[in-house]
Design a protein around this nucleic acid. Structure first.
Length: 818
DNA sequence: TTTCTGCATGCGTTT
DNA sequence: AACGCATGCAGAAAT
């Protein structure tokens, strides 16, 4: 393929990251333009960029904009006026449309009655709507009829295909939108710098455009008051096009209206409705999607203009995504907006661009792009300070405007009223919706109707809007409402407790640090939340509450219950397989186990279960108690906690997986006292001690496997003696762990059979399971050496005076210093 | 180890 | 089918 050169004779560049189509060629096809020139062409600034010094410039008879007559690049941007001179195609079209509108306006309006929708403070707009009737009335209407008729027959499409108002006036705007003027047709038209290219679509756009743009030139309320239909002109036309077309015979069949326009207009009944305004520029191939149309009320616009003492041209806006508002500080700009309203950039690195906020503070961002799928993705970098300054977040809207003259960009913001709105707005089609909210431009909220701008007579649009909303639910990645997220989080935590191994799953036993873990191939299943306990004699079982009678039943440990379980399913106890059977656990016994037992039934009935976030989890509680020596009753009052890390593990599991900090993030100081650190330290200490003991005593290993029995008997004694008869899950686990380590300590002092397989700790676990939690907690709260001393165990630094009396029952042991 | 940077991916929208 | 864009991700740079 031969080398390609840009057909812009001023450029003639042969290298370009992207080639664009220019004007149509007589030979067919389109002129090949390099990216820069092509962009200029698309943005209707080709002649302004490259032909500024050439001859042939004339002014539009309507708006005064300069038109490069006789240039192929502007061929479709001009039209000869009936009354002489030339006009930019947009002005011509606008005239036509406005003439049509004057016919469309319902009788109450055309009669001079202001269409206010209940808003009183509205200026008569009908007069304004008829711009310079002397010049344009009948003739323009005829011309319009002709033009649209041609369009209907599609012959007019080409005529309008390449219109370009040539109003890309970053540098050369002579007349700017004068917001303070009541009626200024020239400025009104000035605002439209479109380059519709798409035939009928263009017509539609042009139909919508005038009314919307017109609003910019009128004081409050005008934007919508001229709309002959509640849904705004676009939707209104669409909705009524049948009769409307019949009546006028001039309107083409319109393409489907933009949902944005419709819904905007829906909400825009009020005089200060937030109407999406097609920006003055940025159409044509780079047609701005309605979602980016600035939705600024006239009042806001006026206020902003007043604040900045300038004429403000709203350009576009964007609802901030999570990425935009995130810490990265990159705001993705809509491509069309970036290419239309921002300087052309050829290098990926882009250029610094200065944008001032509404307070006049100037920010400098890096405006750049990334190559992306043979296209570009424009971003503003370094927006974090500005975003933070404006205190906007994802879901809020940032707006971009321009000060005229001068072209200074202005960034503003509008808060989403709430997350729901943000949610709506976030979805493109919600585009569907405007994002009603408070614009930093003004006290916009005051302009909004209580229901977000909708009036009560909006029922028709409401159903449409709801349909759109329903459709939009699937749109994009939805923001999660805060409450939803909270609920989900809670549910997830709770779900951890409900997870059980699949009944049919066969676990694979693996060893990690001398601990057995069950690995299942199958995912866990949801089951009923139960509480594991230990009976007075050391046997373990679990407690489950009937979903029907709310009584607690004692079940075997291995029982796996469905999420809904009733007494009738109690196949393990024939005496208590009916709700009529009395509860087999006394409330006195239950209360320590089921912290919420007292009100559990009440809560159950109300079905409101909101765990107290402030309460520690099982592991937290135990570790805290271990460190602080909390009263066991306090621990017992803690709700059954849940591990959120390891679905296969019971709550309270202190395995290396469950105790590790989340994602490895977060720094823990050496002196950190968090439960994770404490647990890790404790376990490390235990392991080290175990290792040391093994090593030192292995030689002395003799068959002194006595006293296992004595240990057991002591455990039982303790249990009877004072502790709660049962423990919570996590306590059990911890107890087990303690028991394991106790064994090692006992072994170290020669009380246990040191020949026993340290990996086979199950029997010990079973033995220790029945021990008093109180005892355990007392024990674990003691320094290791103290405890060893108390129990006559050899300590690495035992001294005679280390025995303490505060372990009343001769406690069990703590092999670790807590 | 965290943050930054540039690009890739994939979903949703538009053509 | 093409495009736009939100976000993920890997490598680089900074801390």
């Amino acid at each position: 393929m031969g080398s390609k050169s840009c057909m812009n004779e001023v450029c003639r560049g042969t290298t370009s990251s992207e080639w664009k189509k220019g004007w149509s060629l007589k030979s067919g096809g389109f002129a090949a333009l390099c990216y820069r020139c092509g962009s200029a062409y698309e943005n209707s600034v080709f002649c302004e960029t490259f032909h500024l010094e050439e001859s042939g410039w004339r002014e539009c008879r309507i708006c005064g904009k300069r038109i490069h007559c006789g240039c192929v690049a502007s061929r479709y941007l001009q039209e000869y006026m009936d009354f002489g001179g030339v006009g930019c195609i947009t002005c011509v079209k606008n005239l036509e449309i406005r003439s049509a509108q004057s016919l469309q306006i319902p009788s109450d309006v055309s009669n001079g009655t202001v269409f206010t929708n209940g808003i009183k403070d509205v200026h008569p707009v009908v007069v304004e709507n008829r711009i310079d009737d002397d010049r344009f009335s009948t003739r323009r209407l005829l011309q319009l009829t002709k033009a649209i008729g041609a369009i209907d027959g599609s012959s007019g499409v080409e005529q309008l295909k390449h219109e370009d108002p040539f109003l890309k006036t970053r540098q050369s705007s002579k007349r700017v939108l004068n917001l303070s003027q009541q009626s200024s047709p020239p400025t009104f038209f000035k605002a439209d710098n479109s380059r519709p290219r798409e035939g009928v679509k263009d017509i539609y756009e042009s139909l919508a455009q005038p009314s919307l743009n017109f609003s910019l030139t009128t004081p409050s309320g005008s934007s919508t008051t001229i709309l002959p239909f509640p849904g705004g002109i676009a939707e209104g036309i669409e909705q009524s096009k049948g009769s409307f077309q019949q009546a006028l015979h001039i309107l083409p069949k319109l393409p489907k209206p933009s949902p944005t326009v419709g819904s905007e207009a829906n909400k825009g009944i009020g005089s200060q409705a937030r109407v999406a305004r097609p920006p003055a520029e940025g159409r044509g191939r780079n047609q701005l999607l309605p979602r980016y149309w600035p939705r600024i009320t006239d009042q806001e616009l006026q206020q902003l203009s007043g604040d900045l003492k300038s004429n403000i041209v709203p350009l576009f806006e964007k609802i901030l995504s999570a990425s935009d508002a995130g810490r990265i500080g990159r705001l993705v700009l809509p491509k069309a907006c970036a290419e239309t309203f921002f300087p052309l950039i050829n290098q990926s690195e882009g250029i610094p661009i200065r944008i001032q906020d509404i307070k006049g503070k100037e920010w400098t961002f890096q405006f750049r792009f990334w190559p992306n799928n043979n296209s570009r993705m424009y971003v503003l970098e370094g927006v974090t300070p500005c975003i933070q300054n404006m205190q906007v977040q994802a879901g809020d809207t940032v707006t971009f405007s321009r000060i005229e003259p001068g072209g200074q960009l202005v960034i503003g913001c509008r808060k989403a009223i709430n997350n729901g709105d943000a949610q709506d707005s976030q979805t493109p089609a919600s585009t569907s919706g405007d994002s009603p909210g408070e614009t930093s431009f003004s006290g916009a909220n005051g302009n909004l109707l209580p229901n977000g701008g909708k009036t009560s007579d909006d029922s028709l649009q409401q159903s449409v809007s709801e349909k759109k909303k329903a459709k939009n639910i699937k749109n994009k990645r939805l923001l999660m409402h805060t409450d939803d997220a909270m609920e989900l989080r809670i549910t997830w935590e709770e779900a951890q407790e409900l997870l059980h191994p699949s009944p049919t799953a066969e676990p694979t036993i693996i060893m990690v640090e001398d601990h057995e873990f069950e690995e299942y191939e199958e995912p866990p299943v949801f089951g009923k939340r139960t509480i594991f306990t230990s009976g007075p004699s050391g046997e373990q079982d679990q407690l489950a509450q009937c979903d029907s009678c709310l009584k607690w039943r004692r079940l075997p440990v291995h029982a796996l219950l469905s999420s809904k379980w009733t007494c009738s399913e109690n196949i393990w106890d024939s005496k208590r397989c009916s709700c009529s059977a009395p509860e087999d656990i006394s409330p006195k016994d239950l209360e320590p186990i089921v912290p919420s037992y007292k009100d559990s039934k009440k809560r159950k009935i109300s079905e409101k279960k909101v765990p107290n976030e402030g309460e520690p989890s099982g592991l937290d509680a135990l570790a805290t108690a271990a460190v602080l020596g909390d009263n066991i009753s306090d621990i017992a009052e803690c709700p059954v906690g849940a591990t959120t890390r390891h679905p296969r593990h019971r709550p309270g599991c202190s395995c290396i997986v469950c105790i590790q900090p989340p994602s490895g993030k977060g720094k823990h100081e050496p002196t950190c006292k968090c439960n994770v650190c404490l647990t890790v330290r404790r376990r490390f200490k235990t392991l080290m001690m175990r290792k040391k003991k093994r090593q030192s005593e292995r030689e002395a290993e003799v068959a002194q496997g006595k006293d296992k029995a004595s240990l057991k008997s002591r455990l039982e004694r303790e249990d009877i003696g004072g502790g709660a008869p049962v423990s919570t899950n996590q306590a059990d686990n911890e107890t087990n762990q303690i028991g394991n380590e106790v064994e090692m300590e006992e072994a170290s002092k020669g009380q246990l059979d040191l020949n026993c397989d340290p990996h086979r700790e199950d029997d010990i676990l079973a033995q220790t399971a029945g021990m008093s939690l109180t005892t355990l907690m007392n024990a674990v709260a003691l320094p290791l050496d103290v405890y060893l001393g108390q129990n006559g165990l050899p300590s690495t630094r035992q001294t005679a005076g280390e025995k303490e009396d505060n372990v009343s029952d001769g406690g069990f042991m703590s092999r670790e210093d807590r």
